[in-house]
Amino acid sequence: MQIGLAVGDVRGPATLATVVNQVRVAADSGFATAWASQALGWDALTALAVAGATSDIAVGTAVVPAPQRHPLMLAGQALTAQAAVTGPLTLGVGAGIGAMVSGMFGLPTDRPVRRMREYLSVLGPLLRGDSVDHHGETLTAVGAVLIPGGIPAPSVVLAALGPHMLRLAGELTDGTATWMTGPKTLAEHIVPVITKAAAEAGRASPRIIAGLPVCVTDTADDVRARIAEQFALAAQVPEYRATLDREGATGPQDVAIVGTDIEVAQALTRFRAAGVTEFMAAPYGTTAEQNRTISVLAELALTETR
Results as ranks from 00 to 15, higher is better:
Val23Trp: 00
Ala160Gln: 06
Pro163Ile: 04
Asp261Pro: 11
Gly275Ile: 09
Ala249Gln: 04
Pro163Tyr: 08
Ala47Pro: 02
Thr18Lys: 12
Ala232Cys: 03
Arg246Glu: 14
Glu229Thr: 06
Ala53Val: 02
Glu304His: 13
Arg270Val: 06
Arg69Ser: 12
Val113Asn: 12
Ala141Arg: 11
Gly162Tyr: 05
Val296His: 05
Val156Asn: 12
Thr293Asn: 03
Glu229Ser: 08
Leu120Trp: 12
Gly103Phe: 04
Ala274Arg: 05
Asp222Asn: 10
Thr33Leu: 10
Ala66Arg: 03
Ala36Gly: 08
Asp218Val: 06
Pro148Gln: 12
Glu188Ile: 02
Ala39Gly: 08
Gln77Ala: 13
Thr243Gly: 08
Pro88Asp: 05
Glu229Val: 05
Leu139Asn: 11
Thr286Leu: 04
Thr86Phe: 04
Leu45Val: 05
Ala51Cys: 03
Ala249Gly: 10
Ser102Gly: 07
Gly8Phe: 08
Gly106Trp: 07
Gly211Trp: 03
Thr277Met: 04
Ile227Ser: 00
Ala58Met: 01
Pro112Glu: 10
Ala66Val: 05
Ile57Glu: 02
Phe105Ile: 02
Ala298Pro: 06
Ala204Cys: 03
Ala78Pro: 07
Met100Ile: 11
Leu166Ala: 03
Asn21Thr: 11
Phe279Asp: 07
Gly52Ala: 01
Gly60Arg: 09
Gln82Tyr: 04
Ala62Pro: 07
Ile262His: 12
Asp261Lys: 09
Pro125Cys: 14
Gln290Lys: 13
Val64Arg: 00
Glu171Tyr: 01
Val276Ser: 07
Thr287Ile: 10
Asp43Ala: 00
Thr287His: 14
Pro252Ile: 04
Ala228Val: 00
Arg292Asp: 14
Ala17Glu: 15
Arg306Thr: 15
Val63Gln: 09
Gly76Thr: 06
Arg246Ile: 01
Ala160Phe: 08
Cys215Leu: 09
His189Asp: 15
Thr219Gly: 07
Val59Thr: 02
Val216Ala: 07
Pro252Lys: 05
Tyr240Glu: 07
Gly150His: 11
Arg226Lys: 15
Ala235Arg: 00
Val85Gly: 02
Gly162Glu: 13
Arg111His: 14
Lys184Asn: 09
Ile194Asp: 02
Glu247Gln: 10
Ser155Arg: 15
Gly275Asn: 04
Ala95Gly: 15
Pro125Leu: 14
Val142Trp: 07
Val145Ala: 07
Ala220Leu: 00
Leu158Gln: 12
Val255Cys: 01
Thr54Met: 02
Gly202Leu: 04
Phe31Trp: 10
Gly129Arg: 08
Pro125Gln: 13
Ala58Trp: 02
Asp56Glu: 08
Arg272Tyr: 02
Cys215Gln: 06
Gly149Ser: 09
Thr18His: 12
Ala14Val: 10
Thr305Asp: 12
Leu107Gly: 00
Val101Glu: 08
Ala273Asp: 15
Thr305Met: 11
Pro88Tyr: 00
Ile57Cys: 00
Leu146Ile: 15
Pro65Ser: 04
Gln68Ser: 11
Ser121Ala: 15
Leu40Gln: 13
Ala27Val: 09
Ser102Asp: 12
Leu120Val: 15
Ala187Pro: 10
Gly202Ile: 01
Gln253Trp: 05
Gly170Phe: 06
Ala274Met: 04
Thr305Lys: 14
Asp245Arg: 05
Pro112Gly: 05
Ala14Trp: 07
Gly12Arg: 03
Thr61Ser: 05
Gln77Asn: 01
Gly143Phe: 09
Thr173Ala: 04
Val193Gln: 00
Pro152Gly: 13
Ala27Trp: 03
